[in-house]
Design a binder for these strands. Sequence first.
RNA 1: GGCGACGUGGCCGAAUGGUUAGGCAUGGGCCUGCAAAGCCCCGUAACCGGGUUCGAUUCCCGGCGUCGCCUCCA
Length: 455
Amino acid sequence: MLHLYDTVTREVRELQMRQQGKLDIYLCGPTVYGPPHLGHGRATLVYDILRRYMEWSGVSVRLVSNITDIDDKIIDRANRENRPWNEITHKCESVWFDAMGALGVLRPTDVPHATEYVGQMVEMISELMSRNAAYTTDDGVYLDVKSVPDYGLLAHQSLDDMLSGGGDREVLGAAQKRSAADFALWKFSKPGEPSWPSPWGEGRPGWHSECVVMSLELLGEGFDLHCGGADLRFPHHENERAQAVALGKQFARHWMHNGFVVDTEGEKMSKSLGNVANLLDLVQHYDPRAYRMLLLQTHYRSPVKVGQDNIDASVNALAGLDGFADRMSKASLPSSEPDVETIARFREVMDNDLDTTGAMAHIFDAVRRSNIAIDEGNGGQASALSLAVLQMCSALGLELRAAAEVDAATMQRASDLDAARAAKDFATADVIRNELQAAGFVVESTKDGTRVRRA
RNA sequence: GGCGACGUGGCCGAAUGGUUAGGCAUGGGCCUGCAAAGCCCCGUAACCGGGUUCGAUUCCCGGCGUCGCCUCCA
């Protein structure tokens, strides 16, 4: 049984499912107005790991993750570049899914777009109006947060405390708001801006309204888990929840938030600080699995520093694992089942708040035990352990790669090398090895012959 | 100002009131004709000051430092 830290209760507790064996998750997706950055990558990777682990555990997962394809930022960019706004959103969405594909992130089971749910959003806002929880101003429709008694549940701060602070922050929106914490449900459009009809005037939905409508629409009341980056905890998730409460509806029953990606100085990467690193660069310059590896070796709630050293270490660790997969695939081991105890222990570790760092330690341990078994000629043990390793990695979305088959000519040179060694003609053997290495191969001579693979 | 997190060996990064995290890097060894791969070993880690305790990196208090949230943000 998976136990997860819950942002509301601030404790690790069992993740309960409305329906046994079925997990319904809502993950806040991207606003498509620019390229994905490392932070987006972390969030999607963390929940991809959760999803894969649950599915591997036999749970059927429905993962709804939206695309916010109407937003002020999109309009700003369209104006700036003098392009149609939906050309930008289409382009960015396709870049997004390409990047996620490269990272090995499974496509969500549902990808609702905000623009497809505007009608339902208008209905929801009408309901809020009729319940006296919303009001109009010159520039839009706002939720009256005073109508939500436990507003601040996720922020862990009372409304008064939140309003008293803030320092140098500017309260955005209308001066006409009843309270500074009130937020826009509907924004009236200016001429030329994309807009939809509503009883209050032409406009577009507010960000917080999209997710509450789409999550309730697709998953229904009291769905199992709502997740996203820690920066969405407040105000976004707080405000989604506030709307649901004001509607008299039960919202998510468990809240999960992942930690930030920080730069080498330890500061959060954010667009406003300008220290974001583009995810596309990472995916292009490194084995994309390295990012998953790095995240697996960090707890999902801790900040993670992504830098050259870190990525390099992950690349090297991955190379070790791939080398192991390669060794096992060529060792002609007897067939067997994955080692039961090793798998059981893995579950135990993972069920404790997705302890992937512990799980990785456990996997490395199984690799070592498997290597020892093969060195000792215990093929059955080696096979059971290596199958367990592959299964555990796969449960985390980490696909190990045995080296690709090499061409026949190279295989012939490897045989030549072995022949030379057998004849104790080491000079020739060294020449052949140098030749193969120069051609970019890793050459490993063992009792069972020489293994050649691409570096 | 309010709320919260964190400060671990060269780097990254966990758990934990007392006995090995793990990865990467470095060094030594075994194996090997030499390599590579694999395995083994070493590293005398816990920001500072008090306190609780037989015993604290782990709990409490205080300090210092870093970071996050308090309506752009994964």
